[in-house]
Design a protein around this nucleic acid. Structure first.
Length: 800
RNA sequence: GCGGGCGUGGUGGAACGGUAGACACGCUGGUCUUAGGAACCAGUUCCGAAAGAGUGCAGGUUCAAGUCCUGUCGCCCGCACCA
């Protein structure tokens, strides 16, 4: 048989579709397997080989699970709201609705050409009314529970995209969409109170099976620290300066304090400050720097002493100076710190530069040369002297602070509340009405969806307001509560909204009464296995866990964690070993590969490249190797000699065992390598039985399903599709050969190999070993100290 | 700076502490071809006639180390003036 992929691939794709074999059933008596991949953003650039890799792993696992009899849910959809589409629409004048529909059609056909076994009957588009209706519903539930709120604070703002960004979207000080510098701006924005779930998000990580570095990155992002809040008195002022510290045990070592340039203390007491000019000048300099610059310029400490404000150490009563410096951030803790130069490197640098006292309060180290951050006995600290255990002294100090009313224990998170609104058109409208009399009022649930109005000109306003603000018929409305004239919120939700719950909608995508039926949710949730990219770990993955936990708390979903297991695929690099990008011109288009080599080859090669979780460069030559392999597979039909005994019996059982366990462990590359080796054996033996070929075809089917269907049905004559055939099983006792080749070592060095029956005892192996001239010459005349036998593997003779 | 991971042929990469380099690419030679960037066959870690050496480097544990331990160098990723 020849492998004519261009003829057979569309044929089998049609048969799969007609037979509905990949549609999950709601037959709840069957064991379920819910596999999820990150649904694509349907950009104008089309699919990327990276998409194919991201889906191929779960694809193989799902095809195998189906053959093993599971009720498999393997859905796909489109995360279609967002700035790239809107920007493209503005540039070309084509409406984002039209752009989105075109792109979704293109993506769908590309995915189908690769032969992915998605359940197309459940496809989702986050921009459709019957979908975003529920996105808005969840938002209103959060609003109802006080988790969606407005606040005026310093926010990340992208001047180029003209939108407020969340912390997650401004990592590294760059806008996630356009990669330009972001700036800090005070603005009135919508927040989702994700910090309220910080502890739950941390605790939940203990329960789930995620890759270790995924857990680590999330823990890091949440950034929980424990310590204490302390209020320092201010000399001559009836007010206090509140700070956060993780080291309350060093309070006696405080010799100055530092507040962030934006700290409100300065404006509040401006009239008392003698050197306001110098301070204003410094603040001006800081405001010019981006957050990124401020955190990168670590080398040199700068700052200005605030003359006229003196703090009082609440435990020692000492008077201490207060500085402003940009090494303290307004966004973390209270925006003010107590500085202990003896035991903190940053404070040490600052103290050295400004000539401030350095008082050691922990024994060990030498404050003349460097800050000592290690542990040791507490000194110079009154009632705390003599403590040697850090935790004990911290607890003692917190107890003291609490008793005296100047402080208390507390925790801090690096994670911030989620800035949730975007001043843009192409997103879910926020279903809130602003009423002069009632304040912010939710649009009634029964009025959802609040439709995104059709608009011709949706360029963002120059003043940074949403395009929807220019639409009086949308803005002007009646207050749902009092019925008087009111105005609609005109901002929309960020791109991450729709993707925060999409895995729930797949379970019941056409439900009009609820986001999904609760019995169906109980059956399908949680997602058994979720595979996606590492770049989403501190964005989508954390956002969706938050939404899910909220939905659990209000009784909508049956489990606390949405994803039982999370893995991640590595990148496909360009042939030059660099990250694929348009500007480098090293992007490989999956369409071109399918065109030239076929979908089976593309799928197979992507999984054969190397470890699935690691990055690897594209190599067209290796693609050819995979093509050659599939041609040899097709050619095996010419070697197939009916039934009967075969030399390949144990090889076949071994292969079933190997491929089965390798797929479960995402070791696709070694599974494929084992199948290649098997095919090489078949060609060497020049024969394979029908039964063996039938086993082999089913093992290869998840990787190269089109060719396997062809052999399965056209050559082997099976009536049913290979896609629903039974996964082969193996007999452990038949995976062992009658004879094995064993290594013989003398003093740990390989000297010979001997071929012996399986299970040969030590004496037999020894006798065979000594029959070897080389071994016997090395052993003769020496004392044998011991002989170590690893059955069926190795014999090591130790001589002196 | 802190945390995590990784260093194996010309290349991508295999190796429950047990015959290092599976599988594939590339390369070399051959067969068949008008031709081949097609197909097939043989060879391919290094040096060598043999002995030998060999998983970044230096030690250690072990009968046995790519694998475990210590140190060191290099690369990658995450976090980062987080108090």
């Amino acid at each position: 048989m020849k492998h004519e992929f261009s003829a057979i691939e569309p044929k089998w794709q049609k048969k799969w579709e007609d037979a509905h074999v990949f549609e999950a059933s709601d037959d709840r008596s069957k064991k379920k397997f819910y596999a999820l991949v990150e649904f694509p953003y349907p950009s104008g650039a089309g699919m990327h080989v990276g998409h194919i890799k991201a889906y191929s792993g779960m694809e193989v696992i799902c095809r195998k699970k189906r053959m093993e009899g599971y009720n498999v849910l393997f859905p796909i959809g489109f995360d279609a709201y967002g700035l790239p589409t809107e920007n493209y629409a503005i540039k070309t004048g084509i409406h984002p609705r039209e752009v989105t529909d075109t792109n979704i059609a293109r993506f769908s056909s590309q995915l189908k050409r690769v032969g992915f076994s998605f359940d197309w009957s459940r496809v989702i588009d986050t921009t459709t009314e019957d979908y975003y209706r529920w996105t808005q519903w969840i938002f209103l539930k959060m609003f109802e529970h006080g988790l969606a709120f407005r606040d005026t604070t310093l926010v990340n703002y992208c001047p180029s995209c003209k939108v407020v960004l969340s912390n997650e979207d401004s990592q590294g000080g760059k806008c996630d969409i356009c990669h330009n510098d972001i700036i800090q701006k005070t603005k009135d924005v919508w927040y989702l109170r994700i910090t309220e779930y910080a502890d739950k998000l941390l605790a939940g990580l203990e329960e789930v099976d995620y890759l270790p570095n995924v857990k680590m990155q999330q823990r890091n992002w949440i950034g929980k620290s424990t310590g204490a809040f302390v209020r320092f008195g201010l000399k001559g002022i009836e007010d206090t300066l509140r700070i956060y510290t993780t080291r309350p045990d060093t309070l006696f070592g405080v010799t100055f304090m530092v507040i962030a340039p934006e700290h409100p203390l300065i404006d509040t007491y401006a009239d008392r400050i003698a050197n306001m000019d110098a301070i204003e000048a410094y603040r001006g300099e800081c405001a010019k720097k981006t957050e990124f610059e401020r955190t990168q310029l670590v080398k040199d400490k700068t700052g200005v002493r605030i003359e006229g404000i003196t703090a009082i150490n609440p435990v020692s009563g000492k008077e201490i100076p207060v500085y402003i410096s940009d090494y303290v951030m307004m966004g973390y803790g209270t925006g003010a710190i107590m500085a202990v130069p003896a035991h903190d490197e940053r404070d040490y640098d600052f103290a050295k530069k400004f000539g401030i006292d350095i008082i050691p309060v922990i024994k060990g180290g030498d404050v003349d040369t460097a800050a000592y951050t290690g542990d040791g006995e507490v000194i110079n600290s009154d009632f705390l002297n003599g403590y040697t255990n850090k935790q004990d002294s911290i607890q003692r100090m917190i107890a003291y602070l609490t008793e005296t009313g100047v402080g208390e224990g507390g925790v801090q998170y690096k994670m911030k509340d989620w800035a949730f609104n975007r001043q843009r058109y192409w997103g879910e409208p926020i279903p809130i009405v602003h009423c002069e009399h009632c304040g912010m009022v939710a649009v009634p649930y029964e009025e959802l969806p609040l439709r995104l109005p059709a608009m011709k000109d949706f360029k963002p306003g120059e003043g940074g307001e949403s395009p929807l603000a220019a639409l009086p018929e949308y803005v002007n409305c009646k207050c749902p509560k009092c019925g008087r004239d009111a105005k609609r919120e005109t901002d929309t939700m960020p791109q991450w909204a729709g993707s925060s719950w999409y895995f729930l909608r797949y379970i019941d995508p056409h439900n009009e009464d609820a986001l999904a039926d609760s019995e169906k949710l109980a059956y399908w949730m949680p997602v058994d296995w979720y595979n996606g990219g590492m770049e989403h770990v501190t964005r989508h993955l954390i956002y969706s866990r938050f939404w899910h936990k909220f939905l659990y708390d209000i009784g909508v979903v049956p489990c606390e964690e949405p994803y039982a297991k999370r893995t991640a695929q590595g990148l496909i690099l360009g042939p030059d070993g660099e990250k694929m990008s348009k500007s480098r011109g090293n992007v490989v288009d999956p369409n071109v590969v399918v065109e030239e080599f076929g979908a089976d080859v593309l799928r197979l090669y992507i999984l054969f490249m190397g470890d699935y979780e690691k990055s690897a460069p594209w190599s067209e030559n290796s693609v050819r190797g995979c093509k050659r392999f599939l041609e040899r597979v097709a050619g095996m039909t010419d070697l197939c000699q009916g039934t009967g005994e075969s030399k390949l019996a144990s090889a076949t059982h071994k292969l079933v065992k190997k491929v089965t366990s390798d797929i479960d462990n995402m070791k696709f590359n070694t599974a494929i390598a084992a199948m290649m080796a098997y095919v090489n054996e078949v060609y060497e033996a020049k024969t394979i039985t029908k039964d063996e070929l039938s086993v082999f075809v089913r093992l290869l089917d998840p990787f190269a399903p089109h060719l396997c269907e062809e052999i399965w049905s056209e050559f082997l004559g099976n009536a049913d599709l290979c896609a629903v055939a039974e996964w082969p099983t193996y007999d452990e006792s038949k995976t062992v050969d009658a004879v094995v080749e064993m290594a013989v070592q003398v003093n740990g060095k390989l000297r010979a190999t001997v071929t012996l029956p399986v299970g040969s005892d030590k004496d037999t192996v020894l006798a065979a070993a000594m029959a070897d001239a080389r071994v016997s010459s090395l052993v003769e005349g020496k004392t044998v100290v011991k002989e170590i036998l690893v059955p069926n593997k190795i014999l090591n003779i130790v001589v002196k």
